[in-house]
Write a protein that binds this DNA or RNA. Structure first.
Lengths: 198, 198
DNA sequence: CGCCACAACTAAACAATGTTCAATTTATAG
DNA sequence: CTATAAATTGAACATTGTTTAGTTGTGGCG
């Protein structure tokens, strides 16, 4: 097989995802173009379409990478804590801090239309992996509760944290104050857990 | 002044917003094009640009209309209830039901990039109006609490409901079961309020 | 009644986008 | 060394948002 450059298809995929991530982080999803990515990695658009089905496919991989980093960040944030409640708080804080630190990148995860496009399994796994971390804490926290109760609680709290971090992106400068969203998150965790464990 | 048709500029704006809303509701934001809207209302693209600054501006008005309907729906849902807690539940349910009934339309409210674009005041007011409804309930619920506490609680709960309705759009078919998101919302309201009022 | 100024409107043009694909290049197998 | 086939290009296409020069009709004025 005659390959012209030193990059395998997989390497090109990674280069493209990295370049695209950089563009999204710096300029937002709207500025991401096939030609822009191609130029950044020293190839032509055509090559991009050999490595990805289309732009949406590429964006999905960019977002998957974001979710992976979030997973790593969350895991690290809770690593040295024993108390499940403190761990949940630390995980939430890590979530919110990523969203605040790289708003455009985080926004891309949700801008990319989610209705109408069938979400592939490998991508949904990235989301589920996050929820598993939360579920594990809830199980520690309330071993006597049923699987269903844990399931619901984990999703409720996580959706709440998610909603708060979304609001921080949209909201008035007041709410944008860095620690504001963290105040909301604290309120959510504190009060929700109080009710849940009552 | 020589006007050629029977429609004032304001009428054209309304026609365009209505047509755009129909397209978004039926086919999603991605299928919304200037030419499509123009054709639907019997004008040309140029005319659209006499009535709106650009497509983003038009989309903002489409979303504002969505928020207004949500406001009306929420108000109506709580109208006949006296207990603030029940009212909050009814309002949340109305929120979630709108999001489930018209997912594409609701998604458009958040797909439309919110970072990087300055959100005009008239639009932010639509969002604030929703939060005011929630704040009012919290004030009823806990008259002894400070303004700040009310402020935080209203935003926390509302962001939570929002997160849940977003998750419903994205998630696995399991969570998509219509009453699933309502179960999460109930859990949130019940437990958060328990903690908040403890 | 005529015509004119001017707003409303159109239609064509532009640049940029995602996507495809015939043509070309080049590494490697034989 | 050559033939093969994969890798890569670059030009083409349709479609998008947006602009603008030109056209058309209407209401006001003489």
């Amino acid at each position: 097989m005659g390959r012209r450059s030193d990059h395998s298809r997989e390497e090109i995929r990674e280069m493209a995802i990295t370049a695209a991530t950089r563009i999204v982080t710096g300029q937002g999803l709207a500025k991401l173009t096939a030609r822009g990515i191609a130029q950044d990695i020293g190839y032509t658009v055509g090559t991009l379409y050999l490595a990805f089905e289309n732009l949406d496919d590429l964006i999905l991989h960019v977002n998957a990478k974001t979710l992976e980093e979030l997973h790593a960040g969350i895991t690290a944030a809770a690593r040295d804590l024993a108390d499940p409640k403190r761990r949940l708080a630390a995980m939430s804080k890590a979530y919110i801090e990523l969203a605040n630190r790289q708003p455009r990148r985080w926004n891309a995860v949700f801008e990319h239309s989610l209705v109408d496009t069938e979400i592939p399994d490998w991508y949904r796994q990235r989301i589920d992996a996050l929820l598993l971390l939360v579920e594990a804490e809830f199980r520690q926290l309330a071993p006597h509760k049923s699987d269903t109760e844990i399931w619901i609680a984990a999703r409720t709290l996580w959706a709440g944290i998610h909603g708060i971090s979304m609001a921080a992106l949209t909201s008035t400068p007041v709410i944008k104050k860095p620690d504001m969203s963290w105040q909301l998150a604290s309120s959510l965790i504190e009060n929700y857990l109080t009710g849940f464990l009552r």
